[in-house]
Design a protein around this nucleic acid. Structure first.
Length: 174
DNA sequence: ACATGGATCGCCT
DNA sequence: GGCGATCCATGTA
């Protein structure tokens, strides 16, 4: 999957995602019901849910399910693709590894919370790419509750995945 | 009102 | 591998 930001100005290849929500997920921001922060998670699929983490980073999710079964996919890492306005390709390979770095480089902030990614001219959109080889599945990271759920997907060995997470753990599924 | 604890990262040793 | 930066939604009173 590829994220295209500002129609061709920045394009990245997603290499790490994590799913949250649905029924009975205590690690989901929507677990305790609808609030001002998680409002976008209860809205239409295909919109962004952006929130601040640790007071200084932004994390971006794509909403995947409507209303009461609020669900979203956290975008955790990507590889830079050479953008049309960045012919030098100067972005280091690991610059988008980690959810905070990804939003920083895409320029995604709280202003993008709730934005629809599926309309013409959207600031952030997605396009499918051919099926990736070497996609692994593992438990979720960086959380305390329900971390054992195998809802994290990543491209094994990719520099777009945090260094300590890019090598498959023995328990990870292929 | 006030306390708490994160879906993190960069820099340090 | 440890720590500090720095915010705010939420829980408790």
């Amino acid at each position: 999957m590829i994220v295209r930001h500002d129609e061709g100005s920045t394009r990245v290849r997603l290499v790490e995602t994590e799913a949250y929500g649905g029924e009975d997920d205590p690690a989901s921001h929507a677990f305790r019901g609808r609030t001002a922060r998680n409002d976008a998670m209860f809205g239409p699929a295909g919109h962004l849910y952006v929130y601040r983490i640790y007071g200084l980073h932004w994390c971006m999710n794509v909403v995947t399910q409507r209303s009461d079964l609020a669900s979203a996919v956290l975008l955790r890492g990507a590889e830079p693709l050479v953008g049309s306005d960045d012919p030098r390709g100067v972005v280091p390979a690991g610059a988008l590894a980690g959810p905070g770095r990804l939003t920083r480089h895409l320029g995604v902030t709280g202003d993008d919370d709730g934005r629809d990614c599926c309309v013409p001219g959207a600031r952030v959109t997605f396009e499918m790419s051919s099926r990736e080889a070497d996609v692994r599945r593992s438990g979720r990271v960086g959380i305390s509750r329900a971390r054992e759920r195998l809802s994290r997907y990543y491209l094994a060995g990719s520099p777009g995945v945090s260094t300590t997470l890019r090598s498959p753990h023995p328990e990870d599924l292929a």
